[in-house]
Structures are given as structure tokens and as C-alpha cells.
Design a protein around this nucleic acid. Structure first.
Lengths: 330, 330
DNA sequence: TTGTAAGCGTTATCAT
DNA sequence: ATGATAACGCTTACAA
């Protein structure tokens, strides 16, 4: 691998001063055409490429890089968020370093440090379930910071979340409107923010209808589709369930698996769309969060902050809308 | 946002020389404990954070960054690849800049330039369908380069692809072994490398069985699941199809949609696993490529090259294995 | 319009 | 063990 030619090399080759090459490279116009030609020539023969890393350390210059920390890129939900952010950033000439915390606080913290050391211009973060270090302990300056999908206990950052509570309430109310009284909640641990919110929405809908929640109908240990399937099988066996609200798409898939295995279904509404939803019979109704919009909004806020907007940080709650496809019916 | 403290600031605060702070920060041991304490103290009170961008411009130092260009992060296939690469890189202290070319050559080229200007240590690239600039025209030095998922016309790079031909041949042969003779190929444009390969495997299996391919059974215009569903509906109506080989998972989903709509199915084998495969009845058989392994292997090669291995570039063909779940049966 | 020289935050050489 | 001081590749006052 040959040596990497520098501006100095170009200047020597073209027989001009370093400064002139810099001007040329930065697209300044006041250069005698003849010199410009010589420089262009030199750049091409030498195969010069400017070193953005070197440029970025000058005061007032930036890396044109966004740092993104999500929980798991292999999860379609987070890769959709990442994709939306990356494409918004790319249009503005920024690149994105995306990394996964795997929900582990220490790993998240290490990534934060790393990205700040790399001097990313801004940080978009999905706070990990396992909390990690308090943001108040991170020494300033902290670049523009946006919490995505979940809030965190720090008031220097904007927050973008979906209306988890409202969506869950709507789904549960829909079940109730069809006469269901014994509605199961099938989800993951309540240590997860979104689960707590959805659980709250579920309870609130029950309460509005004067239904007293039954602990036997609440599953919050379904980490995988298989877990959810097993739980739903139990519920079906006891045959005391009128309808199911699946609080995430693993829950929805689990319910479908259980229906298939049991040869019997009950009304189902899930949270979050999933690929198989339209292949099931009946098609599966869900609460949809606009993932692309969430990512886009996060990027938008970041660039707004980068542009100098220093108004107090805000929390943006994006709508979660009920999409009925048939599975809500008895 | 306060000023960003530098090593110099730390040195002044601690009353030591710049060099000593550098030693401390880089974890060197030969420092008098007392000075080390003063430095640690100063770092903490000042909130100093080393500037990796500045460090990386020194000769022999690198950005510890991998550049990744895929076609579309929103596609689960590519996000799975990205996830595997990122996690392998993270374990080694590297971060990944991932970006999408959207299959557009010019966009791909722009990203290549950008990433090389940022001095990424290596590049992992999914060559875009729409070719873009010839790699031979890119001035050296080119960092270690790996083509992923598809080859490109350049021999300075390692290549990692799946055995698309073999997988397609196996799937088609499986259909034949169950007595099918009129087997449809449902896929996307043959301008896509993987499609050409899978199509070749399909033809080769037919040929081995002495079956003459029928153009009416070959669909290569299914860009979406809906396209595929329509095509399969047509095939079913003509009722001259014994079995379907879906050359990607949009094709598989389309076939399932068509089966549902037509109220009738034929044996089906797809290429690439998909979430709904195990929810269908019967469960859908597919050819599985080990996506995680492909990503892991790409990262592994990159680090091997980074470690100095300069043997001639190789092409690695990873297995694509038939996973039978029932849908291959009549 | 062009060039000289200082400086960005870091690491590395070489004395001490 | 510690400290001046010179790089690294770039941008930018300031001169010419």
C-alpha cells in the first residue's frame, strides 16, 4: 500500500504554495486558472485525497459525523430507525456511526465515551434497559443529544417517544367494544419503559370500562416468541380469556403460533407491525408506530440543534395508531 | 457548550509536561504515582476527554473505524449483515460507519470517497446493482477492501458470497424429487447478481433432470411481494404449475399471499428465511444463507488484512442450505 | 492572487 | 521518570 499523498506533496508537484492547494481543494474561486490546472493535474497524478480527519481537528471544524447508539441493530425496529436517521444525515453530508449497546449499561457507556472522543457532532441514543452511568456525571461539553424510543433521567436532551400508552389503551378499548371483558396482556418485563407504558394504557382502558384487572391474565415474562406462545397456550387451555393484547411483536407472533397449535383463536391485537401480520388469517390488527418518522424526527432535531437552536429540550410524543385488519373480531 | 479541554490544559492544571499527560492517557506505566494522581485529578476536574480525531492523524495511528456500504439498511438482510459486522468490530475496539447506496452507483461512489477521506481503516462494500465507477480508477492507496454479497470487477479485494447457485439447485431438485416437472421460478430482475446465480442453479437442476425450461414459468419482474403475489396468481390460474421456487423472500411472501387468496397451494420452496415462514401452514421450506456468518467472515477477513496478511485476495463461497419444513410436499 | 508561518491536539524523538 | 520540541495534515491570519 503506497504512501498517502498530502497537500504538501500536491503543492510541490504543482509548484505552488500549500495555501493555494488548500484554496483549490476547498473550492475557493480566486485562483489563477493556470495554477488551478496545475493543481488539478497534480492531484490526479498523485491520487491525492484530502484527509478529513486532519481537517476536522481545526477549531470550528467538525467531523460531520453523527453517533448513534441503539440496543440491537439486528432488531428490525432499530434498523428501521437507523436507516431513517442515516438517510436523513446522508442528504446533509453527514455519516453515521451506529453501534449496539445490547441493552447493557456498561457497553452503552463505553460507546458514549468512544463516540465523544471521536468528536461526533451529535449523539442519538436509545437508553439501555440496564441503566448505566448517570448522564449528569458525563463531563461537558456534551454534544447535542437526543433520546430515542425511551426517555432517560437527564434534562439536557430532547426526547422522542411513541404514544405507547395511548396505543395500548386504544387496542384494549377496541377489544372491550367487541364485548371482551377478560383481556390478556402478553408482554415482556415491566423493567422496560415501553412495556410499562403499554401496560399502563392497558390498565387505563380496563379501568375506563369498569373492568377489574386479573393478574392471571397478565404475562410479563415473554422475552421471546416461544415464551409468548407458551404463555398464550396456557391462557387458551384455562379457556378463560376473551381476547389478547400482545404488547410487542414477539407477543403477537407467539399468539399466532399458539393459535395454530391449539387450533383455536381469540381476538388479537398486537403492538408494532410485523411482516407476518398480513399473512395470517384473519390478518392481524396492530398498533402502528411510525418508525421512519421517529428516526427522521430525531435527525431533524439534531440538525436543528446543530444549527444553533438552544431552546429548552422538549419531549416529542409521536402517535401510535390502531390498524384494524380483522383479528380484533371474535 | 463549554470549551473542550485539551491535554495542554490538563498538563497546566496538573503542573506537569504535556508528554507526561500523554503517557498517562495512553496507559504507560513509568510515571511517578504522585504525578499520576495529580494528572488523574486534573483530568477529572477539567472533564478532559482525549481527542481521537487528533490522535488518528499521527503516522502509524488509525481511526479504528470500518466503513460499510450496503444497499439498504431497512432491509433485514443487510441490517443482519451490518449487525454481525458491527458486533465483531466492537469487540475489537472498532466502530463502524454504515451507509446505504440505495443500489445507486453514483451514491455508492460518493460514499466510497467520503469514507476514504475520513481515513477508515478498511472498507466492506456491497457493490450496487447500478455499477458505478470502476474500482481500478480509484487512486491508491485503497484500504483493505471486501466485497460482500456480490462480487465486483476488481481483483484487489476479497469477496464473500453465498452459494446461491447451489442453494437454488438443491431447492429445485427437491421439487423434482417429489415428482414436480413444471416448476416456476419467481424472482426479481436478472440484472441482480444473486438472481442470475439462483436462476442458473434452477436451470441446472432442471437440466440434470432432463426437463426443458418453460419461459412461461419464469418470473423475473417481481420487485415486491405484491408483484410476486400477482405473478403467482396468474400461474395458479393457468393451473399448469407443479411447484414454485421463490428466488427471494419477497417471492416467498408473495406466493403465500397468492395461496391465501386463491384458496389453493402448490409445493413451495423459497430462498432466504423470513419471519412468517414458521407461521404458515404448512411451514415454509427455504434455502438458508448464514447471514451472521457472512458478516462475521467479512469482518474477520478485514482484521486479518489489517493485521498484515497480504496473500492474494480470495473469494469465499459460504454454504446455502436447504431447510425443509413441509411446504415442499404436494 | 499567492505565499509564509502559526496553530489545531495529539504522539514521538531525544535529551536530561 | 520527565520534559522541550518537532512532527502529523490541515486551515487561516497576515504579508507580499
Amino acid at each position: 500500500m503506497a504512501h498517502n499523498p498530502t497537500m504538501k506533496d500536491v503543492a510541490r508537484e504543482a509548484g505552488v504554495a500549500l495555501r493555494t492547494v488548500s484554496r483549490f481543494v476547498n473550492g475557493e474561486t480566486n485562483i489563477k486558472p493556470e495554477l488551478a490546472d496545475r493543481i488539478a493535474q497534480a492531484i490526479s497524478t498523485l491520487g491525492y485525497r484530502r484527509n478529513l480527519a486532519a481537517a476536522s481537528i481545526r477549531p470550528g471544524w467538525t467531523s460531520k459525523t453523527l453517533g448513534l447508539i441503539i440496543s440491537d441493530l439486528a432488531n428490525p425496529y432499530y434498523s428501521a430507525l437507523t436507516s431513517a436517521i442515516e438517510s436523513y444525515a446522508r442528504e446533509r453530508g453527514y455519516v453515521v456511526i451506529s453501534s449496539s449497546s445490547d441493552e447493557i449499561g456498561a457497553q452503552h457507556d463505553r460507546l458514549v465515551d468512544r463516540l465523544m472522543e471521536k468528536r461526533v457532532d451529535a449523539l442519538i441514543v436509545v437508553p439501555p434497559r440496564d441503566p448505566g452511568r448517570d448522564w449528569a456525571l458525563v463531563p461537558p461539553p456534551i454534544p447535542p443529544l437526543v433520546f430515542l424510543d425511551r426517555p432517560a433521567n437527564f434534562d439536557g436532551a430532547d426526547v422522542i417517544i411513541a404514544d405507547n400508552t395511548g396505543g395500548a389503551r386504544d387496542a384494549t378499548s377496541e377489544h372491550i367494544s367487541h364485548g371482551a371483558r377478560r383481556i390478556a396482556f402478553v408482554g415482556d418485563s415491566l423493567s422496560i419503559f415501553t412495556m410499562r407504558e403499554r401496560h399502563a394504557g392497558y390498565l387505563s382502558a380496563l379501568s375506563d370500562a369498569g373492568i377489574i384487572p386479573d393478574d392471571d391474565l397478565i404475562v410479563n415474562s415473554a422475552h421471546t416468541s416461544e415464551d409468548a406462545a407458551n404463555a398464550v397456550m396456557e391462557l387458551l387451555k384455562a379457556s378463560k380469556v376473551d381476547a389478547i393484547f400482545a404488547a410487542n411483536n414477539r407477543g403477537s407472533v407467539g399468539a399466532l403460533l399458539a393459535f395454530k397449535q391449539a387450533g383455536r383463536r381469540v381476538p388479537l391485537i398486537g403492538f408494532d407491525d410485523f411482516e407476518a401480520a398480513q399473512l395470517s388469517t384473519p390478518e392481524t390488527s396492530i398498533v402502528r408506530q411510525d418508525v421512519v418518522e421517529m428516526g427522521r424526527k430525531a435527525a431533524e432535531i439534531v440538525f436543528d440543534r446543530l444549527a444553533g437552536n438552544s431552546s429548552p429540550p422538549q419531549t416529542y410524543v409521536l402517535p401510535a395508531t390502531l390498524v384494524l385488519r380483522g383479528s380484533e373480531l371474535p
